[in-house]
Design a protein around this nucleic acid. Structure first.
Lengths: 69, 69
DNA sequence: TTGTGACTTGCAGTCCGTT
DNA sequence: GAACGGACTGCAAGTCACA
């Protein structure tokens, strides 16, 4: 029902795996809690654009890349 | 401090003006509160990606376009 | 290493009206 | 038409223990 949530979840996990990072590694770099990253990757929440910006910067991509289908 | 918020604010206002729509018109089409659109355009809040999706769809653009610098 | 349930806090988001 | 106000509800934000 909430497509955007799932798109972010998939892109987040895909980009993180491409880096070969664990959730722990990303949580450290982005300065957000590891379990919260897990919750985003399982579509539990609809992240804010501020959170999107933090994660994108840690991953070295544009925030918009996290929204691409 | 929160750059993403400002980027969304500017893109939202720019795209809305390109359509020649008032905040009222956009709020009706996107089914979100008019005063909230005002608050987003003045960088008062950091919208969720779900909200971003609703606004992008109403404006006929990709959600990522609202995050472009 | 990751997912989940539980919990608290703060802000997103709505609804009213006024400037 | 747009900004701004208070008051309210619900969910994102943030953290923890445990499976």
């Amino acid at each position: 029902m909430d497509g955007m949530r799932d798109i972010v979840a998939k892109n987040l996990r895909r980009l993180r795996h491409e880096k070969g990072w664990s959730q722990e590694e990303l949580s450290f770099r982005a300065k957000v809690d590891r379990s919260y990253i897990s919750q985003l990757e399982t579509s539990a929440y609809s992240a804010s654009v501020t959170m999107l910006g933090k994660l994108a910067r840690a991953l070295g991509v544009d925030a918009g890349d996290l929204l691409k289908r």
